[in-house]
Nucleic acid binder design. Structure first.
Length: 881
RNA sequence: GGGGUUAUAGCUCAGUUGGUUAGAGUGCCACGUUGACAUCGUGGAGGUCGAUGGUUCGAGCCCAUUUAACCCCACCA
């Protein structure tokens, strides 16, 4: 068996094979078990043409940990994967590909363009799901969905129609965010504000009657061409003279009214604001109140249109420059002040976004937001960590209508049909050919929906909705949704209101939020910095398990993680440790030794008790959605307890023990390893499975092995504590040896003076391990008052005073100094414990358990102090001899 | 303007409801390879837990104030 296992952990040898084995075994596939509560996760669908990046690796690992845990627990488990068509980003790539042929998308035409898009999807759509397999995601590929597949498209149309019928979707001329570069609308959250330094231009608008008029202040002089009024505050005495008057818009010489509105901040600028309702959301609202006309002066490509008069066709910035020059010439430019303000930019291309009026489709948010706020406030959906709940509520409570139409081709086409002849419009679930009013042909809306409109339906559209499928009935609502904080608004919030509206129930009870993966210096990974880490490279070099472990280890809930190769290396080393511990167990195992009925020794009871503790802790950690703590805990158990102590302690029995002792050690090793592998499996699935399949006495995949449960039959608190004392004794001896510079190869005799009967027994029963683990050649138990005449150094610990004859190596001065130091620290402990125990408040309020521990500690420290003092006396006497 | 996060060992970070001796990884120092593992072992050095005040028998953790860095939301022309 051991021939199959090379010395070093080589994940490349088995990872692909393990995954194939799993996928073929069918255990990823969810099964409905009536009467049993399922555990369900909907995978955040990666973009169909995307490449796996480190963020995917993190979110997949987090989900996979939860899924594998629940599957082992025996819950019917569904992890449904999918991909997203990602309207704008995919379209941009295809446009770019077409551009390489020297064509535009208009040259190609809508139909051919979509053909290309689908071909692109077919070609690249499979890569990301293959890459997800590489990191071990155990999702149900038989249920894989795509946001534009037939069923999900149907769900999109259905939701659109329902919301329209309820009056929750409407079409209207509103101020929207327009990206002149991408040539499409953007929703409010797709606009990224950037601070920019600019000017505040003060411009005089003369009175229509030739009076001095008013001075306005603006950051965008070019939009004045679209002004349809000037607003001042109703209580601003400076401007009451203008009531009912018009002023002249310079350059275009158009009379525009002065209106009075509380929106105006008297303290800012001149207290007079030009109203450009077609290009500013606030002006738009003021204009609505005062019936000011919308005058749009910009084209879709960002250039000025014919209403801009002499500036038609110019780019906005060029227009600005010329307008300012012209105003200067006219003597109407009063002042220019430097001014810093925020400018909206496109989240995709980074270009300045133009607010402008346009006829678009919107979702009326207020009625949808209310119940979506309620489900979170009522804790039907909770956020982990909870602080993100505030973010969510704040956004949802101040939400504005959602512009959902996009001027793109790749996406779900809006199911609205227009009759150009009579102006009729219908929204329908199936294509409408002829106008129901006049019978003439109808044409479908050209636009598609925001890509998030379809992903908002993911928790139920993937299960077959609007059909009442068995899957839908069984798996909805889902359990946990795992995602990064940066898409709470884009996706999580929209899933919640969509789920509540369409299904009447929140789509998931827990939202597990994680942070972003950054580079070792905390910078965002980006192409321009070239600091990106490709998860596939890591997998090839270190293995998927190492990557997974590195991603979740030492990660605070919801915080960003600084990822570095150091971390991966540490994780790989841990994998190697577990691998080699497994190899050791396998090499020393004859057959499957059952643990039941074996006569357990001290160390056996210790490790079994520690395993129970580990099982309890990790179960709690995973239930609390904290894989990081689980990883730390299993790391500690595996390395510091199982490997560092138990395996080493078991060696004498395996090598020199009588058959019965050997068999017991083998049984405990096997039992412990099986526990460890199962606890580690959700985090490191490949390694644990590959070992599991080699272990005697295991049947089938570890994926379906029972999640460990703490076994009261193997809970030995007293023995575990005694063993802990022996461990301390071993550490004490090692410490003394190192300090006295005793060659590691030099065996020493140990004389133990136990600190009581119980310790005497524990130490005596641990003789072989004790000798082996601290380089002892022989061990002798001293009586309490027995004197030793040899030259010795001593190690003092709660279990015993240990005397080590070192002959010439014993340097009295050095030993005295060492003991004095130890004495001081023990004495300090004693005085601290004494002061605590004489504190009435402490005695009255601290838990009894804690007080008892303090007393015990005080007692053992006092004993140690006595031992140390005796040793010191002895040394002094001897040094005077 | 509103909200949030972070500050703990040289570096990167953990530290669940307050429990008294603050941990890990990595780096550093010393020593060590006859077989689970040098992707290792043993021992060690290294921290007044950003600052100040408060609550408490007890504070890295709770409260207030404060300093610094970062993030989100809002978008006053």
């Amino acid at each position: 068996m051991e021939q199959e296992m090379p010395k070093a952990y080589q994940p490349q040898r088995f990872e692909a094979e393990m995954y194939k084995h799993w996928e073929e075994s069918g255990c990823f596939t969810a099964k409905r078990v009536p009467g049993r509560k399922p555990f369900t996760i909907m995978m955040p669908p990666p973009n169909v043409t995307g490449q796996l990046h480190i963020g995917h690796a993190l979110v997949s690992t987090m989900q996979d940990i939860l899924i594998r845990y629940h599957r082992m627990k025996g819950d019917p488990t569904l992890w449904l994967p999918g991909t997203d068509h990602a309207a704008i980003s995919t379209e941009a790539r295809i446009v770019a590909a077409i551009a390489k042929e020297g064509l535009t998308k208009q040259d190609v035409g809508r139909e051919k363009f979509l053909e290309r898009a689908w071909a692109w999807k077919e070609k690249y759509g499979g890569t990301i799901v293959e890459q997800l397999r590489r990191i071990g995601t155990s999702c149900d590929w038989t249920r894989e969905r795509f946001t534009m597949d037939e069923g999900m498209s149907r769900a999109v149309t259905e939701v659109f129609a329902r919301l329209y019928e309820k009056g929750l979707i409407y079409r209207g001329e509103r101020i929207i965010n327009w990206c002149p570069n991408c040539r499409t609308t953007l929703s409010d959250i797709e606009v990224v504000f950037e601070e920019q330094r600019a000017n505040l231009w003060h411009i005089r608008y003369p009175g229509e009657d030739g009076s001095e008029g008013v001075i306005i202040a603006t950051t965008r002089p070019e939009t004045m061409l679209g002004d349809s009024g000037v607003a001042v505050h109703p209580e601003d005495g400076r401007y009451s003279r203008l009531a009912g008057k018009n002023v002249m818009l310079p350059i275009l010489n158009r009379p525009i009214p002065v209106v009075f509105d509380e929106y105006v901040d008297r303290a800012f600028g001149t207290g007079a604001v030009k109203m450009t309702p077609a290009h500013d959301p606030n002006d738009f609202e003021v204009a609505q109140r005062h019936n000011l006309p919308l005058i749009r002066v910009m084209r879709d490509d960002g250039a000025m249109n014919e209403l801009a008069g002499p500036y038609a066709g110019m780019r906005a910035l060029e227009c600005r420059k010329l307008v300012v020059e012209e105003l200067t010439k006219l003597g109407l430019l009063v002042k220019v002040e430097p001014h810093t303000h925020n400018v909206g930019t496109c989240y995709r291309c980074g270009k300045t976004v133009e607010p402008l009026t346009s006829l678009q489709w919107f979702v009326r948010m207020e009625p949808l937001a209310k119940p979506a706020v309620a489900v979170v406030k009522e804790r039907k959906t909770r956020f982990v960590p909870p602080r993100f709940e505030k973010n969510y509520l704040n956004w949802m409570e101040n939400i504005r209508d959602w512009c959902i139409s996009r001027q793109l081709w790749w996406g779900h086409r809006i199911p609205a049909y227009y009759c150009d002849a009579c102006g009729e419009m219908v929204v329908a679930r199936a294509a409408v050919e002829t106008c129901p009013k006049c019978g003439r042909p109808m044409r479908q809306d050209e636009d598609v929906l925001d890509t998030w409109f379809s992903s908002a339906l993911f928790p139920f559209s993937t299960l077959g909705w609007p059909e009442e499928t068995e899957d839908l009935k069984y798996f909805y609502p889902t359990s946990v949704l795992v995602t990064a904080y940066d898409i709470i608004f884009f996706w999580v919030a929209r899933m919640i209101f969509s789920g509540v509206e369409q299904m009447g129930q929140t789509p998931f009870h827990t939202v597990l939020i994680h942070g972003l993966v950054r580079d070792a210096l905390g910078r965002k990974m980006s192409k321009s910095l070239d600091n990106g880490i490709d998860p596939l490279d890591i997998i090839e070099q270190y293995g998927a398990d190492a990557l997974r472990f590195a991603l979740v280890f030492g990660l605070a809930p919801g915080n960003d993680i600084n990822f570095s190769l150091d971390k991966v290396e540490a994780a790989r080393n841990f994998a190697n440790k577990v691998y080699n511990a497994s190899r050791f167990v396998l090499m020393n195992l004859d057959e499957a030794e059952p643990l039941k009925g074996k006569p357990l020794e001290l160390a056996d009871k210790w490790i079994l008790t520690r395993l129970n503790a580990c099982v309890r802790d990790i179960t709690v950690n995973i239930e609390a959605c904290d894989p990081s703590l689980a990883a730390q805990r299993v790391y500690e158990f595996a390395w510091s307890e199982f490997c560092d102590w138990y395996i080493e302690w078991a060696k004498p029995r395996l090598m020199d023990g009588v058959p019965e002792q050997k068999k017991t050690a083998q049984a405990v090793l096997l039992y412990g390893l099986k526990g460890l592998l199962r606890l580690l499996h959700p985090i490191m699935p490949f390694l644990t499975e590959s070992v599991w399949l080699k272990l005697p006495g295991t049947e089938g995949t570890i994926m379906l092995a029972d999640w460990p449960v703490a076994d009261p039959a193997y809970e030995f608190p007293a023995e575990a504590a005694a063993c802990g004392g022996v461990i301390e004794a071993i550490r004490a001896v090692r410490g003394v040896r190192a300090e006295m510079k005793v060659e590691p190869s030099r065996r020493v005799r140990l004389m133990l003076r136990p600190a009581g009967e119980a310790w005497a027994e524990a130490l005596a029963s641990s003789e072989s391990a004790l000798l082996r683990l601290c380089g002892g050649s022989a061990m002798e138990i001293l009586k309490a008052d027995e004197n030793v005449r040899e030259k010795t150094v001593s190690a003092v610990c709660p279990a015993a005073e240990i005397l080590i004859p070192l002959g010439d190596l014993v340097d009295f001065e050095k030993e005295t100094a060492r003991l004095e130091k130890e004495k001081a620290s023990v004495a300090m402990e004693i005085s601290r414990a004494e002061s605590m125990l004489s504190n009435e408040g402490y005695l009255a309020k601290a838990p009894a358990q804690l007080i008892r521990q303090t007393r015990e500690k005080l007692e053992s420290n006092r004993q140690m102090l006595v031992s140390i003092e005796k040793r010191l006396e002895g040394l002094l006497e001897r040094s005077h001899v």
